[in-house]
Design a protein around this nucleic acid. Structure first.
Lengths: 345, 345
DNA sequence: GTGAAAGCGCTAACAT
DNA sequence: ATGTTAGCGCTTTCAC
């Protein structure tokens, strides 16, 4: 295989005896080219399979038509769906996607931020690890707009699109209370992020509104053991372990609000092992509405998250920011998730 | 926020009264710079937050240190895991990742191929849609090496890494036969791809080896209704619909080999609705070993796929190809998947 | 050890 | 309608 050198404008120009500039204008659709020349150029470009070089273009134009996407873990179905929202939407508008995975590590995130700068992306959509954000300030200072997705970093004044998690957990809890639950516990990942904080707040508010007591002790932290293996998909395993204790104890709650559907799955198993079953022995609400949730036994009541839509909105926010400049006020958008009632409650 | 212009080599050079060239050499770690100058340059670079511009670099060096990843659907957990294998492995070697989603559409794939060329990636890892491949020939001809992942395009003489699906289905089927099954059916997506062809071949071979009859009629095609919505995650819905018929019919088979774990989930539901249950009424083997498989009720016997490892190998193959050039013989690697026996058989 | 000059592929400004 | 020139930010000769 002869490593044919990439075709350049110059190849077309010399072949046709015109200047590089004319070729550029013809291909760029500028009007100051005669029909005849344009046709010849188009034909030759087609013949030799010419494709413009983004890097050269980017250098001149100051835009690479690329957006960076920084996410924590593509194996989390929510983020996979987020990609599914972002990629086609961005592509439809002419943007390529540079993907970086942080795996909840600030160190990785710092590197990702620098990589964004190296690659001179037009802008970035970021699911921040949270905890340290100096590198994002630097990215912003370099004139690269950031849209935070799912998790916000309020101090930076960036655009944001995510879920109203407080509402989601509030509705879940209210639903459980309406179904007769009095003692409710919450299972959440052990991550210091705004999404979880929101859900916990929603839970407490719903309890308070119903005149029911609730305390920090009702919120159980599920270790996700990231140290085992960098970027495992979510596992029901830890929730199962915790669920066993929770189910075995003397003071089993009436219901559990799980931070995601995987945790709910672990609970199902813990229940089944003792011959128990949702919702009779323990009502369970999930979070995320994973494709399998409707097919669990019993089908899981859970909160549906418009992940795709969030991805699309993130792109829209970013492109709008690119048009409007950094001085326009940041837009914060929080979509309302919907409780899907099935048979586990 | 003042849209601070990006720092360039020149900014450092003028600030320090040296030439751009010297700065470049200092930062590039070349030795023809005095310790003193180097230190001053480093300090200033740090101070103004200098980050080199990949596009300029790529133009002169001929490499953007970027690899393209073309996949069909990140919501398929197998591909999500593939990303999890590729991204950190590539990043560790200094490569950025440009992601393109084709959603099983040849048209999208053609565009992705062109985009790869525009972006002048060093190479690409591709899960091909299969069916039309002229655009890949063009990419290859432009000197961009391709590694096919999971699905091969044998004619192109590219490197390949995937699964020995024939073996996976063979073992599944053999396992079912050993457990007493005589009439076995296969459920597969309605896609004309090599992975499915491999599994079907493995099934037939296992049946033949056991002296059992099997025909095309035993392979049921599950429509995935991609037209409904572009890039939905996999759904158990269709398999459930088909499963209902399969379970209701007079001649229910003894066992089913499902093409993926989602189909198995749909079957579970179809069974449960009639008060039936695996494995007693119908033995079921899944494919993929999704994180939830072990937590289904009963836990699903399924074939574990080393998706992460495939991603890492794909990167290795690509980098090796980048070193060795296009003339070295293509390497084809097929990993052996492992049957995980649980309670559904 | 350092600088000046050239050029990667492209587009924009300014001729003609 | 077309060509010439300049320059995007960087690295690589080649002088000194």
């Amino acid at each position: 295989m002869t490593d044919t050198r990439r075709a350049r404008l110059r190849d077309i120009a010399t072949a046709l005896g015109v200047s590089v500039n004319t070729v550029s204008r013809a291909l760029g659709g500028k009007d100051s080219v005669s029909e005849h020349t344009r046709e010849r150029i188009m034909a030759e470009a087609e013949r030799i399979g010419y494709v413009p070089n983004t890097h050269a273009r980017s250098l001149v134009l100051g835009s690479a038509m690329t957006i960076g996407l920084v996410i924590t873990n593509p194996s989390n179905p929510f983020y996979a769906q987020l990609i599914n929202g972002i990629e086609p939407h961005g592509r439809g508008r002419g943007y390529s996607l540079l993907l970086m995975v942080t795996d909840e590590s600030v160190e990785n995130e710092r590197r990702a931020a620098e990589s964004l700068l190296r690659s001179a992306v037009d802008g970035a959509i970021v699911v921040p690890v949270q905890g340290e954000t100096a590198h994002w300030t630097r990215v912003q200072a370099a004139g690269v707009p950031i849209v935070f997705a799912n998790r916000d970093v309020p101090d930076l004044g960036c655009d944001f699109v995510g879920i109203d998690n407080e509402h989601g957990a509030y509705e879940s809890t209210r639903h459980l209370i309406a179904a007769g639950a009095r003692r409710i516990q919450v299972l959440e990942e052990d991550l210091p992020i705004t999404t979880i904080a929101g859900r916990i707040a929603g839970f407490h508010r719903a309890m308070a509104d119903a005149g029911l007591p609730s305390s920090d002790a009702d919120v159980i932290s599920v270790p996700t053991r990231r140290h085992d293996s960098a970027i495992l998909p979510w596992q029901p395993a830890e929730a199962y372990r915790l669920g066993r204790e929770l189910v075995a104890g003397d003071d089993r709650p009436d219901a559990v609000v799980a931070g995601n559907d995987f945790f709910a799955l672990g609970l199902y198993r813990a229940l089944a092992e003792r011959g128990l079953r949702a919702p009779g022995d323990l009502a369970i609400v999930g979070y995320g509405d994973h494709p399998y949730a409707a097919y669990m036994d019993p089908p899981l009541t859970t909160v549906h998250l418009p992940a795709r839509r969030i991805g699309e909105i993130a792109v829209d926010l970013l492109l709008r920011r690119l048009r409007d400049g950094a001085d326009a006020a940041p837009r914060k958008q929080r979509l309302t998730p919907e409780l899907v009632v099935r048979a586990s409650t």
